[in-house]
């Protein structure tokens, strides 16, 4: 296209900005959240993948494998909690890619040479991930109901479910962000997605762990996802919640570890 060249308008003097202070730190973070959310909507592939993939897997497990798997309940009721957490884990993994995109382009230098709180950049990415995943998870739960999922949760159960899933998304997003900070490229950051897709198979997401060979059981019973899935299953379908505190402890532990790792690696890599 051609741009009309007009006489340069008198440029107003730049207004002076104020720096420092808590109010500005909050404002910086809001600006970065605004940016990350906007970039998410502008790149709908990621958004669609993080909803469509879990939907396809749910259809596959409910309609194809489900008939051959005995869990003592309707299989759809058994598998939906696992699918929900797989969905959020996979969705959170895209945080690694969006963080890596910033770290490997000139953008991070620009942002770091501005007088802003350094945490604002990562908080922006993680918040966008949470927003994205709340949308995707809602979609997956609605689709599950359409496929015959019949939760018998009361409002308190739903509230606890929402709280636990939210914490879980937050924890995995920070872990993904930490990987994004150290990834050499956006492509290598996408490996996090495969890990998050694969790990739920070694849990009680799709089949009860007691059906697995003895050498796998210790791993599948004690990895963090299993107690979280069992808790979600208990909250939604009324199976006994035996390890709710374990689930909460794992989730909070992962959240703290992910946040600390991301913040430390960010400062370290950025200072190179």
């Amino acid at each position: 296209m051609t741009t009309a060249v007009t006489a340069p308008a008198p440029v107003r003097p730049a207004p002076a900005g104020r720096h420092g202070g808590l109010a500005n730190a909050v404002a910086d973070t809001m600006t970065m959240i605004d940016r990350s959310v906007r970039l998410t909507w502008r790149n709908p592939d990621t958004l669609i993948m993080s909803a469509v993939l879990p939907l396809l897997m749910m259809a596959l497990f409910v309609y194809v494998f489900g008939g051959a798997i005995t869990t003592g309940t309707e299989y759809v009721d058994y598998v939906v909690p696992g699918i929900v957490l797989l969905c959020t884990g996979y969705g959170a993994s895209s945080t690694a890619m969006s963080v890596a995109a910033d770290m490997t382009s000139g953008m991070i230098d620009r942002l770091r040479s501005l007088p802003i709180r350094s945490s604002a950049v990562l908080v922006g990415h993680v918040t966008a991930s949470v927003v994205r995943n709340v949308a995707a998870t809602t979609l997956v739960v609605l689709a599950a109901v359409a496929m015959g999922f019949r939760p018998d949760a009361d409002p308190l159960d739903w509230l606890l479910f929402a709280g636990l899933v939210l914490l879980y998304v937050l924890a995995l997003s920070w872990i993904a962000a930490a990987f994004g900070v150290v990834a050499k490229s956006v492509e290598s950051a996408s490996v996090v997605g495969f890990v998050m897709l694969f790990v739920p198979y070694l849990s009680s997401a799709f089949v009860p762990t007691h059906t697995m060979p003895a050498f796998l059981r210790p791993l599948s019973e004690h990895q963090p996802i299993t107690p979280v899935i069992e808790t979600v299953r208990g909250l939604l379908t009324g199976t006994p919640v035996e390890r709710g505190w374990v689930a909460l402890a794992w989730t909070l532990g992962l959240l703290v570890a992910g946040y600390a790792a991301a913040a430390w690696l960010y400062r370290r890599r950025a200072g190179r």
Partner: peptide, 20 residues
């Protein structure tokens, strides 16, 4: 160092807001 998926104006406004 520009965000390819934002418009030119959005990029500038973002920096302006980060400069408070």
């Amino acid at each position: 160092a520009v965000d390819a998926e934002q418009t030119g104006r959005e990029n500038l406004v973002m920096v302006g807001r980060l400069m408070h």
